[in-house]
Structure formats: structure tokens, C-alpha cells
Amino acid sequence: MAAFRVGDRVRVRTNDPPTHMRTPAFLRGKVGVIERDQGPFGRPEDLAYGRAPRVGTVYRVRFRQREVWPDYRGGPRDTVAADLFEHWLDREAS
């Protein structure tokens, strides 16, 4: 079952576990909006070590550039999107 719906606001977790992961550092702690459900994928944290992966939904999440980079130079509507695993996302009050 997908944890989030398109339009939900989420915050990326700030964990920094000593493991392989696919959550870029520049987005940790940032708030974005779920844009697209990309379907179920195995966790990179498991796959990288040859373990049977726990499976979760990956979401395309869109962030306002000005939220990601306080010094951002460009339009206020500019965004950056990334594909993030649900176990890295927490619901954020809208």
C-alpha cells in the first residue's frame, strides 16, 4: 500500500546511516510535494549488500529550488525533482 498520495507534502529524513543509499544529501531535511507514484522498488540499502530487499514505493518528489538552496538565483517557480524511497519520507502538515 502506498503511504502517500500525489499532492502530499513530505519532509526528507535527515538520517545519515553508514550504508549505501540513494537519498541525496542536498535534499535531506527539505520539504517537497509528491508528484508521481513510481511503483514498488527494492531498497538500495538491502540490494547493495546482497540481502533480499524490503520493498517500498518510490515517489517522484518536487522541491522548490528556493527551499533547497537559500541562495538560489532563478525564478520562484523553479523546482528540482528526485525519486525517493518511502522509508526516507515523513508526512509534513500542509
Binding site: 540513494r22 537519498t23 541525496p24 513510481q38 522498488f41 538500495p44 518510490v58 517522484r60 518536487r62 529550488q65 532563478g74 525564478g75 517557480r77 523553479d78 523546482t79 528540482v80 525533482a81 528526485a82 525519486d83 525517493l84 524511497f85
Partner: peptide, 15 residues
């Protein structure tokens, strides 16, 4: 143009 919205897609997973 400043009016154009720029969207950067970062391919962080298997998509």
C-alpha cells in the same frame, strides 16, 4: 527567460 519554470530531474532511483 525569467518567466520559464526550470525543472531539474535528479535520477536518484531506478527510474
Amino acid at each position: 527567460s525569467d518567466d520559464t519554470e526550470v525543472v531539474v530531474s535528479d535520477s536518484t532511483a531506478e527510474i
